[in-house]
Design a protein around this nucleic acid. Structure first.
Lengths: 183, 183
DNA sequence: AATAATCTTTGACAATTGTCAAAAAACAAA
DNA sequence: TTTGTTTTTTGACAATTGTCAAAGATTATT
């Protein structure tokens, strides 16, 4: 789901309310927007650049999610539940990021319940997208998943390290290197 | 997420409104609640029994989702988008199923916008659960995923065919048979 | 109980992917 | 440019998982 044009997704008055809640900031490459072990209070919208969530499994750096222009990203294991997060949220290239605190978003919805509907619609979309990724991971080979990534999000290929893309696809860097050698 | 006690999740008046929309019916083993290639108009809540969604990939029957008592299931690739579904929704044992048409749920929300909030909260939960499954599929071995299934949903083990559980975990039936032989 | 149908396990082997180590290539900083 | 750092590729080998076929075990039907 792409939020580049928020005002095409929600009514204008809601879009401008949301914009007033955004804190926009530039961050250098490798900056951590959120650190594991803490509760994540923000949702990030990428204006320019690329951001990923990752965590460590047995010492290995594993990418869970990648967001580029117009996409949302956060420590999803924390922001709703308020539990401590296992994830880090890292800026991969010099980026401009809109942050919105989840709390202020909730206050907005309390103040204007007529906006709840749009939040629900957005969540329905995101849920369906998540279901798609589950299906892809379960039932497609590493090569099929890589080919699909090239098709659906080609801009990521040359901007994100191979190692990050590999773990995002659920394979090792070496395997991905070999996959793309034999097209 | 478990909807056994709907009235603990949403206010009583909403719970009773929802109950009035439910069409409850018993179905025999192997009954198809929904057939692939058609648009899915209902969400199903399992009162008693087990239901799965599956599709065919290269002739093979692949289980995408399994729901037992208190859980929701539907053809998620269709019910929101209204596209034709790739999934079948099948009753695995004689079951009692509540069906709610997605349209009537939407009408309910139009009539009582104060309920939107609860729909959003439910979707947030479901979304976070989906993110968990993605992480599990990406970064855990077949054995870890099976051990986790035993821990989290032990009641499925002896009620669902090994082949269905295997494809739900993303592995073949033979591999799962071997995994559980060596604990 | 006997028979048929379905489900699960096993064996032999193939294909895919992972691991570790090192070389090559690309990128960044002085 | 030169040097140092990071990223990507490659090779050799190991581990995991898949495929196909057949045998057992279980469940359902007559």
């Amino acid at each position: 789901m792409n939020f580049n044009n928020l005002s095409e997704i929600v009514p204008l008055d809601l879009a401008s309310e949301i914009f007033s809640l955004l804190e926009t900031q530039k961050f250098p490459k490798n900056h951590l927007l959120h650190k594991q072990g803490t509760v994540c209070k923000h949702i990030y919208l990428v204006q320019k650049g690329i951001v990923r969530t990752f965590f460590y499994k047995e010492g290995k750096d594993i990418t869970v999610h990648i967001a580029s222009e117009g996409e949302l990203i956060t420590a999803i294991d924390s922001v709703i539940s308020l539990k401590k997060s296992r994830y880090n949220v890292e800026v991969l290239e010099a980026s401009e990021i809109h942050a919105i605190s989840y709390e202020s978003l909730q206050s907005l919805l309390v103040k204007h319940p007529q906006y709840e509907k749009y939040m629900r619609l957005i969540l329905e979309q995101l849920y369906a997208e998540g279901a798609d990724r589950i299906e892809e991971l379960l039932f497609y080979t590493a090569k099929e998943r890589y080919d699909n990534l090239i098709k659906v999000r080609p801009h990521l290929i040359n901007r994100v390290n191979l190692g990050h893309i590999a773990s995002y696809l659920g394979i090792t860097q070496e395997t991905l290197s070999r996959i793309r050698k034999h097209p």
